[in-house]
Design a protein around this nucleic acid. Sequence first.
DNA 1: TCTGGAAAACAGACTGCTTTGTTTGGCTGA
DNA 2: TCAGCCAAACAAAGCAGTCTGTTTTCCAGA
Lengths: 202, 202
Amino acid sequence: MASEKTPVPNEERTERMRARLLDATLDVILKEGWAKASTPKICKQAGVSRGAQTHHFPTKASLLAAALDWRAGQYEKKIVERLAAGEGQERTLRALLDGIWEAMLDDRFIQTGMEAMVAARTDPELRALLARHDMDAVRSMRDMADDIGADPLTLARVKDAIELSVYLFRGLVVQRGVHNDPKFKRDLYDKWCALVDDALAD
Amino acid sequence: MASEKTPVPNEERTERMRARLLDATLDVILKEGWAKASTPKICKQAGVSRGAQTHHFPTKASLLAAALDWRAGQYEKKIVERLAAGEGQERTLRALLDGIWEAMLDDRFIQTGMEAMVAARTDPELRALLARHDMDAVRSMRDMADDIGADPLTLARVKDAIELSVYLFRGLVVQRGVHNDPKFKRDLYDKWCALVDDALAD
DNA sequence: TCTGGAAAACAGACTGCTTTGTTTGGCTGA
DNA sequence: TCAGCCAAACAAAGCAGTCTGTTTTCCAGA
């Protein structure tokens, strides 16, 4: 009658359930903050029983770690995609900064990352995990400068400018938690770009 | 005999108790992180009963708010003192940045501030409080540039550079929770100063 | 100056709630 | 049948806020 049985393979079921949980984990961290992100809330957000959650992720720490791993992968992908999108246009430092800046504006990835980084200060396991993610992220941002045609000396300076930009943007993201004013952010970004331009155009 | 009774005035008793609690609050946030800073832990750290804590601070939120207010005041004082200390030497942008940078290295004030700022994103009351603190802090940092003899046009640029520095340093503080490498930090600071020098020396 | 009650400061127990991890049992695809 | 998947109940622990009782300071009136 009504029940058309479409058997779902176990492997796929597992994959779906994990994805829903990881997704919900980031959602809850984003909405409630790191401190108030509890497993019951995550399960409710995901529409999953707590039994299912504990089956796939026995401890809360394992769930959070998996979510952050997944997050890092998605973020990396996002950066790469954004680079590929601007394949045609000229490669300038400004274009790179614009790309990083826009990627940084994505709440879901950046805000959860900041929450995790701050929490990692007092959590050794989390710290080790994020240290790896962070090194990868910074390195890939620096490497983006390789496409700019530049002599080795200025290339190093450009890469340093990019790295500094990353940290500055992170500071602005934290700032955003306190004042969320798009215009203010935009102005500051423009000032930053002007400063970098002046510095590198000697 | 043995018990020389020196009655302590209520006013002073209150002041002492409050100070111990506020101090312990920052200690616990620093050591355990925002999420795990509970009132029992704070009381234990302060060597105070929970009854006393609830007497002076009926809710946890009121305790945290008071501690952050106190922190902001201390931080302001610290900056002013540092400025006064270098009264004799010449006022340059570099000297100002050095001062801000050193003040930023103080765990007790900065790390607790970062924890609070991130938590404030999902806590409207905390957010309002920190928004005020932050505006005051940034403004006072900008005002520090007034002592530098400079024409109005470059003065504005110097102030912008200071503000950008503040956000950059905050990004580095967050970074510090993940990698705490003094040399790395120092190198990055030097690169930053070089960049600013290049930008403003046109 | 002395004194007795009011008010404040403090201590500790208790309540209701939330959280995390475990366990028990039914269900489904292999 | 059997192993993995999932749901719900359960146990232990921790937390915030309230309440009761004790000690200390304050202050007004004799």
